[in-house]
């Protein structure tokens, strides 16, 4: 047998710890995408996150729109048994207010309008019989938000002409509603946080499991000079694909749910709720949920692998 030289690579191996582009072709970790439970668990969590985020954003919008509409509003109520006096006081109050700087408009709400507004609450009969004195109402629009001081000043001016008048900022009526909306927003935020934590935990467990079943391969790659970074990248990539698949499914499911809910709420026709319609920035944020999910999953995978490998020689 001729002593032919062995067919080794032309020069010695490049010894720098260069990136491992080559390992991308040869799958170090056998990958069966969308086979394990992880993509589906991620899909469920992304869907829930999308719904929670949409709810939180809608609640924020409701709060913002409502407070925009109400922040410059003041209502003057004049409770006075004599309808003539009542109307006179109301008109005087409106006149005084309209003369003030910083007031957009102060208008007396017509008695029919007030009755129409109250009717559903009290029933037609009582009003017809004039047994219940209906207050006169002056709707005041300010140019700026109503501060406590400003409200006090307005109250003093109004009481000069209508001693028994009640002067309230419209926003104070809705304080409990705003409180509830705030709680809803916090709840949505907390849910998003919890779901992110759960996602990281799922990835951590899945990666630990994969590290265990691929321990031999990892040891061999180590002994052949593979770095922790190279090995981490393989797992990270694999988890990234799973998370991307799960994220796409989760986003679709979540969007279907959000749109269906949106239709139902829109059907209610209530002004407050339609103020919660999602704007394009909101949709963008929702679309970013699966992207953030993939990022979080990959980061968790990388961290888990690097931490586990540090214990190997």
């Amino acid at each position: 047998m001729a002593l032919k030289l062995p067919p080794v690579t032309g020069g010695s191996l490049v010894r720098g710890l260069r990136s491992l582009s080559g390992l991308d072709q040869a799958e170090l970790v056998p990958q069966t995408r969308l086979a394990g439970p992880m993509p589906w668990v991620i899909a469920i969590m992304v869907a829930l996150t999308v719904i929670a985020a949409a709810a939180g954003l809608a609640a924020s919008n409701v709060a913002r729109n409502a407070s925009d509409a109400l922040s410059g509003g003041v209502t003057v109520q004049i409770v006075e048994a004599d309808p003539i006096v009542r109307l006179r006081q109301a008109e005087a109050a409106a006149q005084r207010l309209n003369a003030l700087p910083g007031i957009d408009a102060a208008t007396v709400v017509s008695q029919e309008e007030v009755e129409r507004l109250i009717e559903p609450w009290l029933g037609g009969l009582a009003i017809d019989g004039q047994q219940i004195p209906v207050p006169a109402i002056v709707d005041v629009r300010l140019r700026k938000e109503v501060s406590g001081e400003r409200l006090g000043a307005l109250r003093r001016i109004v009481r000069e002409v209508a001693p028994g008048a009640r002067v309230d900022a419209q926003s104070t009526w809705l304080k409990p509603v705003f409180g509830a909306i705030d709680s809803l927003r916090l709840l949505a935020l907390a849910l998003v946080g919890l779901l992110a934590g759960a996602l990281a935990a799922v990835v951590l467990l899945a990666v630990r499991n994969a590290l265990g079943t691929n321990r031999d391969t990892i040891e061999i790659v180590h002994l052949l000079g593979g770095t922790d970074q190279q090995i981490a990248r393989v797992f990270q990539r694999s988890v990234g694909y799973d998370a991307a698949g799960g994220g796409a499914i989760g986003l679709t499911a979540g969007l279907v749910a959000v749109l269906a809910l949106g239709q139902q709420f829109a059907g209610l026709g209530a002004g407050l709720i339609s103020g919660g319609a999602l704007g394009w920035i909101d949709w963008l944020l929702i679309a970013l949920v699966p992207v953030a999910g993939v990022g979080l999953a990959m980061l968790t995978a990388r961290w888990t692998v690097l931490r586990a490998l540090r214990r190997m020689l």
Binding site: L13, A26, G225
Partner: peptide, 15 residues
């Protein structure tokens, strides 16, 4: 057999 070359970053066309 290609694994050590891939680990060392030898491009696919060269291995």
């Amino acid at each position: 057999v290609a694994l050590p070359l891939r680990v060392a970053g030898v491009p696919e066309r060269d291995l």
